[in-house]
Amino acid sequence: MTALVETRSDISRGPWATAFRRLRHDKVAMAALIFFCLILVSCLSAPLYAKWAGVNPFTSTLDATIMLDGKQTAVMEQSTEGLGLGYNPIGPTWQLGNYFLGADNQGRDVMARLLYGGWTSIIIASGATILTLLFATVLGLAAGFFGGVTDMILSRILDILWAFPVYLLAISLSIVMIAHGIDIGPFTIESGSLWLPVFIIGVIYIPYVARPIRGQVLSLRESEFVLAAISLGVPSHRILFRDILPNVTTTLIVFVPLMMALNMLTESALSFLSIGVQPPDASWGTIIQDGQGLLYSRPWVALAPGIAIVITVLALNVLGDGLRDALDPRSKIKLGRG
C-alpha cells in the first residue's frame, strides 16, 4: 500500500500543477495518453498516407491493380477455382502504402480508410463530448444552484431523457433525422453531415453528465464560502462562475476522456447500423459494417477497425482513471522520490 506523500513544494505549486505532476507520475495513465496521441497523429496523417499510397479511399476502384511481388495484381479477384464463384477483394499485403490491410468490397484501401475513419470517429466523439459537457454544465449548474421549480423542471427533463435506453434513443433519433436532417430555425444540419451524429450522440448523454454535476452543485451551494458570498450579496452569476464552476471543473475534466470513449462506441454502433456516418465517408463503425460481409474470407477488414476501437477506448478509459486520481485530492498516488 502506498501512502500520499506531499512535499512543501507540491503544496506551493497550486492544485493544477500538483494534479499535472501526479498525472505525470502515473505511468499507466501517461502510457495511455501517449498511445492516444499516437493514434491521433496517425489518424491526422490520413490524407498524407492516402497521397503517398496513391489511393482514394472514398471512390470505388473495382478495376484497380497493384504491384505485388513484382507482378501486377488485381485488387478485386475473381475466383478461378471450382465453379468460379465469388469476387473477393485482395487480402492484407502487410506492405505500408500498398494495400497494407487489403481492400474492401469496393476495392478501396482499408488502411487508408482506417486512418480516415479514425479521424472521423475521433472528431465525432470530441464534438459530441464538447456538446454534452457544455449543455450538461449549464443544466447542472442551473438546476443545482437555483433549486426549486427550476431544479424540478430541469431534473425531470433529464430523468425522462435518461429513462430511455441510450442506444434505443440514439437509434430512434438517427432513423428520424437521417432522412431529412435537422432544421430548427437558423439551426440546420443536412442529412449526410457529420454534425448529425455529433448532435445526436451529444444530446443523448447530457443527463449522464448533468446529473452528477447538479449533485455536486447542490452540495457546493451549501458550503460555507458560497453561503458567505450569498450573504454578502454577491450576484448569482458571479457566484456561479467564480465560485462554483471552478469547483466542478475537475469533474468535467475527468468526464472528457470517459465521454470520448463512450461517444466513440456509440458512434461506431450507429455507423455499423447505417444510421451514423454515411457512405462514402468512413468511420470505424462503417468499416466494420463493410467488413461484416467479408468476415469469412477477409476478416481483417472488420478486425482492424474493431481492434482500433478497443485500443482507443481502452486508452481513453485508462487516461480517464488517471485524470480522476490526479485531480482527486484524496487519491493515493506517490509523488516525488520520497
Binding site: 475466383s79 477455382e81 471450382g82 464463384l85 465469388g86 473477393n88 468490397n105 468476415l295 477477409r298
Partner: peptide
C-alpha cells in the same frame, strides 16, 4: 448465400 462464402462453396461443395 453470403458473398464471402461463394468461393468456398464453389470449390469445396461444387
Amino acid at each position: 448465400a453470403p458473398a464471402d462464402r461463394l468461393a468456398e462453396m464453389g470449390t469445396k461443395n461444387k
